[in-house]
Write a protein that binds this DNA or RNA. Sequence first.
RNA 1: GGGGGCGUAGCUCAACUGGUUAGAGUGCCACCCUGUCACGGUGGAUGUUGCGGGUUCGAAUCCCGUCGCUCUCGCCA
Length: 629
Amino acid sequence: MHEFRTHTCGELRKSDVGITARLSGWIHSVRDHGGIIFIDLRDHYGKTQVVIDPTKDFYQELERWRVETVVCFTGKVVARTPETVNPKIATGEIELVADEMTVLGETEQLPFLVAKDEDAPEALRLKYRFLDLRRDELHNHIVMRAKLIEALRRKMWDLGFTEYQTPILTSSSPEGARDYLVPSRVHPGKFYALPQAPQQFKQLLMVAGFDRYFQIAPCFRDEDARADRSPGEFYQLDIEMSYATQDDIFAILEDLLTDIFPKFTSKQISPAPFPRIPFRESMERFGTDKPDLRNPLEMIDVTDIFKDSGFQAFSKTVAAGGVVKAIKVSGIAKADNPQPRRFYDEMIAFAQECGAKGMAYIIWSAGETKSPIVKFLTGNELPSLAEKAGIQDGDVLFFLADKRALVNSVGGKVIGELGRRLGLIDPNVFKFCWIVDFPMFETDEETGALIFCHNPFSMPQGGMKAVETQNPLDIVAYQYDIVCNGIELSSGAIRNHQPELMYKLFEMCGYSREVVDDKFGGMIRAFKLGAPPHGGIAPGVDRMAMLLADAPNIREVIAFPFNQQAEDLMMNAPAAVDMKQLRELRVIPVPQELKYEETFKKLLAEAERIRAAEAAAAAMNASAAPEQN
RNA sequence: GGGGGCGUAGCUCAACUGGUUAGAGUGCCACCCUGUCACGGUGGAUGUUGCGGGUUCGAAUCCCGUCGCUCUCGCCA
């Protein structure tokens, strides 16, 4: 008989009754009746009830029947009587009557219980992550994630893609997020960078003729955390394809997502093709570039209606170049169940917290309009609004008036808040959309200079001709995001593979040819030696897993995540290292309490002093012993 | 770097406007119990109220500082 087990804890069935089996696992729970003891033995596969007669010799061996002890039981598989069958577990029709027991791993008192889902503080859960991972919910999340990755790989191969690996130690690139740097021992003072994404490598693979690339790629960005953004490292399903148009890439992703998502969720998936919303339209309608399409609310531009209105708060805003936008909420003012006055007050307070000066509203109810502003609307405003918004009885319009950017930003937040408060967001669907036509450039708010809006390697729509003839701020790129339920799953682009066009775009942002050659030399050289048109996308694996697991934050789908401060509380990373290691790398840590600039100058001065002393000593030696030569 | 929230027993939480010995559930320890499956019962131990300072006759409670966790803005091509 195998030393540890003949079956797993989820395996035995009625058909196994009569055999002798050996099971190993954790003590999940103990029910000690004095004359008989029941133990639920748990492993990765399930739970099995073990029955113990306390008169057996082995009973004395285990001092405490403490949960989470790892034990091995050998005994006979016995059918349970009908009234003692437990339908809640797969092995509930049988139980193991123990003849022998071996303790394989004892436990001290647990920092939190595995068998109960009580909320332990996250710091504790992260420190004892291996315990937390034993718990059903997290355990299942990690298994689901593994299966998701397997399914993604399989689908990508089915679609004709091949997985290629790319370096983890590479060079720092000037654009984008903060890099994680690794000091070079061989080249003191120089650094590798961990890749923020295999962006340049995958493009070079296209130039190298591999045609269809994918990789479950680790990406490293030294940026602060969010609920849907783990600091440090994360994974992307990185995709790149040659001779591809934007439509080709969309078709691949729509195929992938509508195939994969239903395998892991019972929620309804929006059918392909997914809606395509130009970036500017999304900002105007939803106030964000990642709209949650489950929320039916959106902004309507009603600036025209208020241009000459007697309500001066609005008409003056319009005169000053601002806009007035309305958000229609249907049916919340019906006579049988109207929202109370307090609801409107709270929404106005919310809008003000978001930066609005105020928020007006009009209620259409029982043939009348109720509103603090309606007495100022002496012109044709009310019927115009009703017509433009398609108002029916019980509907409400909320109004925001200010500069366009502010109205959009506040409006987006108000839409989200209204959706949440009124329960308008269906939790049982996944709604995808594409955000397309991102601007190539924007202006730096501080300097007013032209900067890249997204990815400097994206192809501007219209190519060189557009770049030469259009206002730079009007140029849009073949640059797109895919958004699911308000979460950005991925960015992608058709790449700019034309060196001259790339030089031109960088020049517009103030980078000379030399700088481009220096920073992106590998890629520019490649593009000068026969580059196919290509493009790609890179959906976030962690975010997909998070959506599918319905997890409140991304740490719930990562086995060993960092906390918000980018620390691994279990492994104690980051950590100080030996002086020997630092010496090899020529790295001197400067304690945080010391002022960096001053310390740096002192160190430089000290280095200079040592160098001068050594040079002086060498000169002395040379003059003292000239006869040696 | 900025803003919000939280911090009381191993864990989850309570403790009124500042007022007696800081409580409950769970876990832990001991004992009882032959059909439970979150078993049940009896008893017991467990606290620098995150830390430091202040106000007060008196502080878990109020004030200041600090640390930790979390959400968020900046940031994330």
